[in-house]
Simulated scan of single mutants.
Amino acid sequence: MTLQTASSSTSLAPANPWALVPPLGNLDAYISAVNRLPLLTADEEQTFARRLKEDNDVDAAGRLVLSHLRLVVSISRQYLGYGLPHGDLIQEGNVGLMKAVKRFDPDQGVRLVSYAMHWIKAEIHEYILKNWRMVKVATTKAQRKLFFNLRSMKQGFKADAALDDAATHRDTLSDHEIDMVAEQLNVKREEVIEMETRLSGGDVLLDPAPSDDGEQAFGPIAYLSDASHEPTAMIEHEQRDRLASDGIATALEGLDDRSRRIVEERWLKVNDDGSGGMTLHELAAVYGVSAERIRQIEVAAMKKMKKALAEYA
């Protein structure tokens, strides 16, 4: 079907403009069909845009979208190097095109093709960033700029250094090249290094699926799990803290003054130099008894405290 230019606005669009692209079986057929769709002249584009803006005419919006589907196909080809399905790239680009048509103002004096390119690329960029890896690799403006420019710039550096075998086969950027990228893209040097590291890495499953023989494969989940936040471990840790503070204080209260001081001086005090408390002989000199007697008092006090702690727990 071809577009017939007419003076009246009613003749500009068929009853169902979406019928211009019939149901298709594959991507090649779709691309062939959209490339045969007629382009709109500037006057026709203005007429449809005003009908959409002033009357919310869906058929006019359809003609604006259909006449620019080939633009989406052309732009989407620029992003095939990211390994994502071409059909998905086109689909996301079409979403951007429809957003552009909805926001297009015919009074701005620009063609829709110039306005729509930004929206088409924005939707494709967002799709690539969300789906290129399991973990999103770029979130800030500087990271996005690096993601979509770093690979092409690295290829340019390799082409310029084609006569240098070492540089040609080197996969990482040199310090001078990192500085050049940072200057050209107006980003920090550290951001260039970080993005190059992200792009060179791959995805690793935290919990790999079992192998063909039924054995569970070893994955990072085995050593990345934080056992300290496991409920049972948290309860045990809380109990140990309570015993180390309130429990010991309660057990010490059950001792006589001499036994309590011996335990405190032997086990609960630390000197300024980091050494332990008083020795048996030092305590023996304080109380005027033998070191063996101090040891016997200590053993008896520790048994009594152990029983008190068990009751407290």
Rank of each mutant, 00 (worst) to 15 (best):
I75H: 03
F218L: 15
T172F: 01
D207Y: 12
G109C: 07
H237A: 15
H237I: 05
G109K: 10
N186F: 05
I124V: 13
A310W: 07
D107G: 10
R151A: 08
A285G: 09
A251M: 03
R50G: 03
N131M: 12
H118L: 14
P22V: 09
A19F: 08
L69S: 02
K102C: 07
L150T: 00
P22D: 05
L224G: 07
V73L: 01
F147N: 02
D203W: 03
N16K: 14
E196R: 00
F104A: 05
Q78L: 09
H86M: 12
A61Y: 05
D213P: 07
M302A: 08
R151G: 02
G201I: 04
S9M: 13
T140C: 14
V299S: 08
D213H: 06
A227C: 02
D55M: 03
D43P: 01
L52T: 00
Q4D: 15
A13N: 09
A285F: 04
A285S: 10
R295L: 07
T250W: 02
V135F: 10
E92W: 10
N94P: 01
R133E: 13
S259W: 02
A301F: 05
H125E: 12
D226W: 05
E191G: 00
E215A: 15
K306A: 08
V73H: 04
D226S: 04
E54D: 07
A244Y: 04
K121M: 03
N149A: 13
S7L: 15
D164P: 02
R151I: 07
L224E: 08
A310E: 10
H229L: 07
L40N: 11
E194D: 03
L27H: 02
L89V: 08
K102L: 13
L173C: 00
M234T: 13
E230I: 06
R189F: 00
H86Q: 14
K188E: 00
G25Y: 11
G62F: 01
D226M: 03
M98R: 10
N35P: 01
L20S: 04
H68V: 00
L252K: 07
A161P: 01
H118M: 13
R36N: 14
K121Y: 02
S67K: 03
I294E: 10
D203E: 15
R189M: 00
F147G: 01
N35S: 14
G109D: 08
Y30H: 06
Y312P: 06
L39A: 13
L12P: 06
A138L: 12
K303C: 03
S11D: 13
V137M: 13
A300Q: 07
D107F: 13
